[in-house]
Design a protein around this nucleic acid. Sequence first.
RNA 1: GGGCGUAUAACUCAGCGGUAGAGUGCUACCUUCACACGGUAGAAGUCCCAGGUUCGAAUCCUGGUAUGCCCACCA
Length: 874
Amino acid sequence: MREMDKAFDFRMAQTRWYEVWEASRAFEAAPDSGREPWSIVIPPPNITGNLHMGHALVNTLHDILTRFKRAQGFDALWVPGTDHAGIATQMMVERQLKAEGTDRHALGRDAFEKRIWAWKEKNQGAIEHQLKRLGCSVDWTRNRFTLDPALSRAVRKVFVESFKAGRIYRGPRMIQWDPALQTALSDLEVKYEERRGKLWYLRYPLVDGPVNGVTEVVVATTRPETMLGDTAVAVHPHDERFQEMVGKLLEHPLTGRRIPVVADPFVDPAFGTGCVKVTPAHDPNDFAAGQRLKLDSITIIGFDARMTAAAGPYAGLDRFEARKRVVADLDAQGFLVKVEDYTHKISLSDRSGAVLEPLVSEQWFMNVREAAAQALEAVRDGRIAFTPEHHGAVWEHWLTNIQDWCISRQLVWGHRIPAWTCDACSRLHVELEAPAACGCGSTRLTQDPDTLDTWFSSALWPFSVFGWPDQTAELRRYYPTSVLITGYDILFFWVARMAMAGLTWMGEVPFRKVYFNSLVRDASGQKMSKTKGNVIDPLEVMEEYGTDALRFSLAIMAAPGTDIAMSAARLEASRNFCNKLWNASRFVQMNLDDSITLATTPEFGEAEYWMIGRMRDSLSAVTKALEEFRFHEASDLLYHLVWDDFCAAYIELAKVQLLSGTAGQKAAILHFLDILLRALHPFVPFLTEEIHEAVIAPRLPEGEPALLAQRTWPLDEPTLQATGGDPTLIPRFQEVLSALLRLKAEQGVDPAKRVPAFCSLLELAPFTEALKSIARLDSVSFTGDELTTPTRAVALAAGGAVALELAGLKDPIAEKAKLEKELAKLEKELEPLRARLADDSFITKAPEAAVAKLRGQAEEKEQRLAQVQALLGA
RNA sequence: GGGCGUAUAACUCAGCGGUAGAGUGCUACCUUCACACGGUAGAAGUCCCAGGUUCGAAUCCUGGUAUGCCCACCA
């Protein structure tokens, strides 16, 4: 049998087990097993990705649940996979090309796409390898990629049928254009940022002379360059100041073009001058107003963010350069009234960081109103349950106000839109496969160059991974998935869209429960960011503290609805915990010989019955906590079960027995360790598997799987059902032990100095040896006689008293001070108890149990008070 | 402008109707034959503030303060 080292070598353990698990096929689903299915799909990481703390958390929680469910006897399936991540990946490769002095245009579309595929093949392994290092028990035989042929077929099917149903359409709309990436974005990919800017006040003269003595209109704008595309100036219809202006013509200061004053309620009379310039081609509000009022639209900024020919002398200038020139020209010609400092929000690309340009462009959109209504209903009626629940409010708000989704991207990397235009007759064909010919007879058809938003394929993930649109056995068995675990930051991007897609295409929710995991922050609660330099790399943590310590730290801090502050202190605590379990196991191993196995009938005494009771209570609480996603509670319970109950209490007691123990006593502790390992395994799989190999595996009964990863959840273990003994006895023993130790400390007795002790609790006599060895006493005498003598120090414990014989050692002053301190403490504690028990309204109105409980507490304290007083009097 | 969180020991956080808990840190002591990544004893809190409900509130309600996040077209 393998000897265990003095400290847990996590570096060794965490590198050797994954291969064994994978080879044993322990993580593979068993669709034919007849067991109840339980399924979960991974939030597919980007192929460009590296494991960060967010991944580490979400996948640790996935793994805990999956291993737990598998152990409970479910046919547990965790489907892994990766996302092609359109923009992110394309950017990565473009950056590479730039370094090589070329770009995608020079390369050509096909070559560029091939290049990205090559890059994907080379790099995809990284994130998968990192998931393995984390211990993720995914079923690799079902690994998926969003651009797999099967998943692409699902994408095309959804696109084509949505188009035919009229939910997908193409048209010119105002979209958010990213000039850096040269693509449209969806509203969700826009981030707003406060910037200090200016507010320019511009003068637009009236063409037909003064109105009520006023010769001009003044407008305020943050983007003066767009005035080149102005086609009106608007006022609020009820603004009395401008009633007579409406309908009059103004002369455009720079172009001389004549534009009308119009009235529209979108104008806020209280802002600026109450007049606003209208540029339908370059502002979403103005675009909408332009549609309502049938205004002209003049595009003066192009897709390259440079001024167009329509901008006249400014053509070709960058939009920001044009701004300076426009302002200078207006100023020179006397059209600039004033400039104010002004802080406002500008829209930036979430991806490139570029300042976005609202532009009118031909794009594909998806109307999701109907699907949104269904998704809304599914949460309202509980078919999907959120943890924490408050995310339902956000869900409600967003889905109620949802806008059409811009799904086309001007990218190469992604699902190409399955739409072809006939070169001859311009007819549009939206089909699953390229049509051979157009109805007009032409065989020359050109496919739409655009690809779909990455989230379009992600939305189908919970059913596309199971082979949809084919009605596969897997799809029937594992859809809907049992749980979704993900960050709340992608509630709209992903969760809502999966819900909508699932309800639309499967007619059923994609998951029954959603657990939103926390955000991992740094030790001081700051968001991690590269610029702040406070990013904690999980891979480094695994090297320094161990994967199990990382997992346990994440789990024990994962209280629903609160963020996680990851700190070195917490990681150390977890590492120490792992080492504690390791050493407890080592102790067990050292005390067993090969003849003791799990088949050896265990013998239970008081200590064992107590330990069994503790395990039974804790493990049923752990089970319940896991069912309800209270990972922190489950971890905390196990932490204290192992450290306080098993190590500090039980093992210390068992040491006395094991020295001269019977086989049955040794078998008992072996069973206990076995149970604890099985319960801890979902949390700290490498550590527990390593211990299991050394201590348990050689002692397993016939037919039990040799790998801990394949064994069962221990809650129903026969050992845990055993009852007997007096459940209050061990707690009393602990109190007595603690009182004796405290006496020694208070009296300044060297801990190693063995003195005689006395105890009035006769029922603890069987624990004489334990008390002697743990408290390091000379002897312990159990007696009904008065304990107090002039040479002894006395303390109260567990309703009785203990004493130390300190002839020549006792410090009478310390003794008296101690007793007086205790007296004061008791008096202080009793004061409110007495007051409440004297309160009639409490006695009559509070539930009986509460009163009885309080009364019990008071009585116990009164008794102790009397004892202390007696000791002081003596 | 709306919506949602959070405020508890020096720090990071649990608890969320019956008079305060954990981990780390701190103080003193202990190398006792599983573990110093350990053990023993100990100090440490107007549970943000003000009202209210209740026999009783850190816990529920209202208002405030601080702080964080999300959504929204104020030029």
